[in-house]
Amino acid sequence: MTAVQTVNSTLRKLPPWTLYIVGAIWAGWLFYLGLTGGLGVEPIEALEHRYGKTAFQWLLVGLAVTPLRQHLGINLMPFRRAIGVTAFFFVLAHFLVWAVLDVQQLSAIWADIVERPYVTIGMAGFLCLIPLAVTSNNLSIRKMGAAAWRKLHKLVYPAVVLASVHWVWLAKGFQIEPLIYLAVTLGLLATRFRPTRTRVA
């Protein structure tokens, strides 16, 4: 068996719902750390950033599913929905920590969304993901038809671009990490929009 086959057969044994369990445990663990001092002396900002970054990482894993299958033959397709929903769950957690624990006031939340471009952009990315989360079930695919469903779910592309700009924009000074995420995002999107060349056998 090749390495890819081993990976694929291992993945097949793993039911996709395990991802939800892992995601929930991870989110809960981070929250627990925040409560008990494990995230440092300023846990609100730390938790906000940890949830945001985790969400971003899941979004990128979701974007990697197709190129991984096309170029390396690794099959993560059975996990794609669980990956996407887990990503959304962390985006929601990120948003809630920001709104409830960080900003704390409804008027200030609204003012931030309207006046601060990086918040506006993050919010727009979040809104893009809501219909995707809502339609992440077989019933929606049947009702909408596969073509329309696939088209709707292309909203993940603007969402992840908005997420990367959101992070680059909020960084103080010139910082490398958000730029790396932006580059990975653009790279993963490029695998989709580049015309596929026929490979020489």
Binding site: F31, G34, L35, V41, E42, P43, I44, L47, L101
Partner: peptide, 8 residues
């Protein structure tokens, strides 16, 4: 936010 107030 005064540092030291915890998560809430």
């Amino acid at each position: 936010r005064r540092i030291g107030g915890g998560l809430f």
